[in-house]
Amino acid sequence: TTFVALYDYESRTETDLSFKKGERLQIVNNTEGDWWLAHSLSTGQTGYIPSNYVAPS
């Protein structure tokens, strides 16, 4: 499932994924509650993102 970032997010830990508003993200795993494992289609990096910062594209 592809989502789009609603806001900028700066990672707080090394497992988080930083992203910019408008960036497209492929969700890898969304069974972890409020933090989803995502892959950035812009940077190619993978990490955890706050689910309330993204919406379906």
Rank of each mutant, 00 (worst) to 15 (best):
P56A: 08
K21F: 03
L17W: 03
N52K: 14
Y53L: 13
E23S: 03
N29G: 15
A38L: 00
T15Q: 13
P50Y: 03
Y53W: 07
T15I: 03
S18A: 10
E23L: 00
G44L: 10
S42L: 12
E32R: 14
W35G: 05
Y7Q: 15
V28L: 14
D8S: 06
S11H: 14
T31Q: 13
W35N: 10
H39K: 09
R24Y: 13
I27S: 08
Q26I: 06
F19C: 14
D16S: 13
L17C: 08
Y9D: 00
Q26V: 07
N30Q: 03
S18D: 07
V28R: 12
D34T: 03
D34M: 12
S11V: 02
L41W: 08
N52G: 12
H39A: 14
Q45R: 11
G44Q: 15
F19L: 02
R12W: 06
P50I: 03
Q45C: 10
S57C: 15
L25W: 02
G22T: 01
N52Q: 07
A5V: 08
N29M: 14
S40F: 01
E32L: 07
N29I: 05
I49G: 00
S40D: 08
S42G: 11
Y7W: 08
E10W: 06
S11P: 10
T2S: 07
W35P: 15
A38M: 04
E10A: 09
P50M: 02
N52L: 11
T1S: 13
V4K: 03
F3T: 02
T13L: 12
L41G: 04
Q26R: 13
T15Y: 04
H39Q: 10
P50H: 11
S18P: 05
Y9C: 07
V54D: 01
G47R: 01
W35E: 06
W35T: 08
L25F: 13
L25C: 03
K21Q: 12
R24M: 14
R12D: 03
K21D: 03
G44F: 14
T43R: 11
T46M: 11
S18I: 01
I27L: 07
E14I: 10
S40C: 04
Y53D: 00
T2R: 03
N30Y: 13
A5I: 01
T1I: 15
T31N: 03
I49T: 02
G44K: 14
G44V: 01
T31W: 09
K21M: 08
S51R: 05
Y48F: 03
G47A: 02
Y9A: 02
S57R: 12
T46Y: 15
Y48M: 14
E32Q: 15
D16T: 14
S18F: 02
N29L: 09
T1R: 09
N29E: 06
D34L: 09
R24N: 06
G47S: 00
K20G: 03
E23K: 01
W35I: 11
N29C: 14
Q45K: 02
S42E: 11
V54T: 04
H39S: 13
F3R: 03
L25R: 00
S40L: 12
L37S: 04
E14V: 08
W35M: 07
T31F: 14
T13K: 13
D34F: 08
T2D: 11
L37C: 12
K21R: 12
V28N: 03
Y48A: 12
T13W: 11
E32Y: 08
T13N: 13
Y7D: 10
S42I: 13
D16A: 09
E32T: 10
E10Q: 13
D34K: 06
K21H: 07
G47E: 01
P50R: 10
G33R: 12
T1V: 13
T46G: 05
Y7S: 09
D8K: 07
L6Q: 07
D16K: 15
D34S: 06
D16H: 10
G47L: 00
E14S: 13
W35Q: 13
P50V: 01
E32C: 15
L41R: 09
Y48S: 03
K21G: 04
I27C: 14
S42A: 13
G33S: 08
Y53F: 07
L17E: 01
N30H: 14
K21L: 04
S57A: 05
S40T: 02
L41F: 05
K21E: 09
V4Q: 07
E14R: 09
V4A: 07
K20R: 11
D34I: 15
S11T: 04
L6S: 07
